[in-house]
């Protein structure tokens, strides 16, 4: 229902907006829903807004869990 893509923050433009990179394309998006965002963070973008910060650290957590279950 809700299209979203990962994007990397290139530059915080002001309190409300940031420039992000989407696979080499640049878009100015609102960061008003994610006030703690920093340059270099990955965010999930929907309709021109960052919806939340993507935590790369846990990206493979589900995989690790399922692999353990498979081998047990």
């Amino acid at each position: 229902m809700c299209l979203g893509v990962p994007a990397q923050i290139l530059k915080i433009l002001d309190e409300q907006m940031a420039r992000v990179d989407v696979d080499g394309n640049q878009v100015d998006i609102s960061i008003q829903l994610v006030p703690d965002v920093k340059t270099g963070d990955y965010v999930l973008v929907h309709a021109g807004f960052a919806m939340d910060i993507i935590d790369a650290g846990v990206a493979d957590e589900t995989m690790k869990l399922l692999k353990e279950l498979q081998s047990s």
Partner: peptide
């Protein structure tokens, strides 16, 4: 939650309040 890299159990509080 399978989609842990983006979804937090408490959701996005700022968005909920908005």
């Amino acid at each position: 939650i399978q989609y842990k890299r983006v979804v937090k159990p408490e959701g996005n509080r700022v968005a909920q309040e908005t």
